[in-house]
């Protein structure tokens, strides 16, 4: 039940986009068509599922106070270790995909390397650290579920946004609001709609 709660909560209640604004830059920039949004969402979800547990292990067994050597607290290194893990992992995925599936590589194109600096990835790892300190995440399994839920939430948000933006090409939007302006306001309204999920528990 605990694990299911983490899953539901990270998709709907603590949605990456609507509750924390994570990954907004690529969210606004790439949500112009549903097809590219689907591709980017899948890539982000995959990287999240892999990097959150990796960082969980690193934090729990190396960085946390007393984890590596009794009396040594390396948690000030968290930022640099997390971002190094993420950048290295993204680089690795890029090389593997390029080697074994060139067609997928050309489909994902520029998105893949850009994921390293997507704040949703780093944000999920930093929240994972907070949740470990707060006792909410207690095993690798739960951290995988948390990464998966966060990724699916982001995926859901960007695909919905892309679908709405495809429709708005036929609407009469004030000239000054066209593009990012209306995208922000739509996201705000979607965020208000997502507030109905707050408090759901099993």
């Amino acid at each position: 039940m605990e694990t299911l709660n983490i899953f539901i909560k990270s998709i709907f209640i603590d949605n990456m986009v609507f509750a924390f604004f994570f990954g907004m830059c690529s969210y606004i920039a790439v949500s112009k068509s549903v097809k590219t949004a689907l591709g980017l969402g899948a890539a982000v979800t995959f990287v999240l599922v892999m990097t959150v547990p990796l960082n969980y292990l690193l934090y729990n067994y190396v960085l946390k106070a007393d984890a590596l050597v009794q009396g040594v607290d390396l948690s000030f290194l968290t930022f640099i270790i997390f971002i190094a893990t993420i950048a290295a992992f993204v680089q690795l995925v890029e090389m593997i995909v390029e080697k074994f599936s060139p067609s997928l590589y050309s489909q994902l194109g520029i998105f893949l390397p850009l994921i390293a600096v997507n704040c949703a990835i780093m944000g999920a790892s930093l929240f994972m650290q907070q949740k470990v300190d707060g006792g909410e995440l207690t095993s690798v399994w739960q951290s995988i579920v948390y990464g998966l839920g966060s990724g699916l939430g982001w995926w859901l948000a960007i695909v919905m946004m892309a679908a709405i933006r495809e429709k708005t090409t036929y609407s009469h939007i004030p000239a000054a609001l066209k593009g990012p302006g209306i995208a922000f306001i739509i996201t705000g309204l979607m965020g208000i709609a997502f507030m109905i999920f707050s408090g759901i528990q099993f």
Binding site: P174, A176, P180, A183
Partner: peptide, 19 residues
Amino acid sequence: LFPPMALILCGCIIWVHRS
């Protein structure tokens, strides 16, 4: 105080700025 309002405010700032 809720997150969605920040997005809507930001949208309004863009609106004013681009006008």
